[in-house]
Write a protein that binds this DNA or RNA. Structure first.
Lengths: 218, 218
DNA sequence: ATATCTATTTAGATTAGTCTAAAAATATAT
DNA sequence: ATATATTTTTAGACTAATCTAAATAGATAT
């Protein structure tokens, strides 16, 4: 049996390793889990004992196929619950992450499959992230960060990197949501801020914003 | 902060004390929690420290107002999730108890109020039990057990005592659900079994069944 | 009223997850 | 290449919830 804490560590290793392909250091893991490196080391050893990660002392950990499967299933649950909260219970996209962190640990394959059907088999969550299907398959959108966008081009907003409520509320305040069209007007060399046109209005966004907003060419 | 385990003990004390009005012995509590008496003693002491129960050594424990409020809120969440699972996700009434045991611990007042609204403010769960409103208020139906029913009278099924999937599946197999009309024909003195007429068909139910089916006069 | 039985509590140990502080390995700098 | 700094691991301790086994309180029976 897998514990809630183990599940959270596995999910975090998955995210830190860029979809399970890179080694994750215990320090990075501890940082992401808001805990101490010694705790992360202990947990990584435990996960290695259970064959969810491959772990080499001083080198870091990487998910095994079994660990990857668990991570993807937790992510599937997280994102389906987010769709439920937004589409059915009328939460706004900046409120659902913390709630989904709780709901993602409910154990029942049948529940999640029925929820999937009830929601109409959605392919993306409210932040534009893809939802793995019941076999764990999903396609990553071919997206770029606003910071990498070309001047003069027009893009469509397809996702966010940071899904903190602070960032999402910033986007709300500026009427930017998934599907919003963004024209890139000018990049300031000094502070890497970017002037864009959104909904017919010109505005300037900081580099932090530009690093966290994903776009796709239209 | 209240832990998941504490919440479960409080809920069980509530049920064992008949809506919070009787002392509960540590042995009864341990039995209901599938644990040992020593564990129940430890937990009851801890709950007393936190002022969720009043506890006298060798006498048992009873919920305080604060404990009662927590119990009722957990029950509200449990029953609302059961309605969601049956009404929206098409689970049958015998499948939802274990799932609701998990979902009832999700912490968010806003979530449960929005779920309540989404479900249309239901007053009863799929087993006929009343759902406390957001102030904790609910009315107990004036119900009797089939075992106490009068011969010759016709009743309507309004609830179950045992909501195990075994018992609910027995009812499914015999086409008995909430609202089903039941005419009481004869009580056997020898084994306390009861002959009833349901959906035009006569059948005999054991005393165990008669002790777990709640009826109301029509 | 005393012995016996049962219910309850206490004492001490165990596990999961965490922590601090110290030790060891690796990386960096001169 | 050696010293220094950083990262990672180890050792030992702590808390929550549990257990077993022993001790104690209360109930029951003669």
């Amino acid at each position: 049996m897998i514990t809630l804490t183990e599940e959270n560590y596995i999910k975090t290793i998955y995210h830190l390793s860029k979809h399970g392909k890179e080694m994750v250091s215990t320090n990075a893991l501890a940082e992401a889990m808001s805990t101490k490196a010694s705790s992360a080391t202990d947990m990584v050893k435990k996960l290695a004992d259970k064959s969810y990660v491959d772990y080499k002392k001083y080198q870091g950990a990487i998910l095994t196929d079994a660990g990857n499967k668990i991570a993807i299933n937790v992510i599937r649950k997280h994102r389906l619950w987010e769709v439920f909260l937004v589409d059915k219970l009328c939460f706004s996209w900046d409120e659902v992450h913390e709630l989904a962190e709780q709901l993602e640990h409910i154990k029942s394959q049948k529940l999640i499959d029925k929820l999937d059907a009830f929601l109409g088999y959605p392919t993306h969550d409210p932040h534009g992230d893809p939802i793995p299907d019941k076999h764990g398959d999903f396609t990553l959108v071919d997206k770029i960060m606003l910071a990498q966008a070309q001047i003069g081009e027009t893009y469509s907003c397809v996702g966010v990197n940071d899904s903190s409520s602070e960032f999402l509320q910033y986007l709300n305040n500026n009427k930017i949501e998934l599907g919003t069209k963004i024209e890139v007007l000018y990049k300031e060399v000094f502070d890497s801020s970017i002037k864009i046109k959104v909904n017919g209005l010109e505005m300037t966004v900081s580099n932090s914003v530009a690093q966290n907003l994903y776009l796709q060419k239209v």
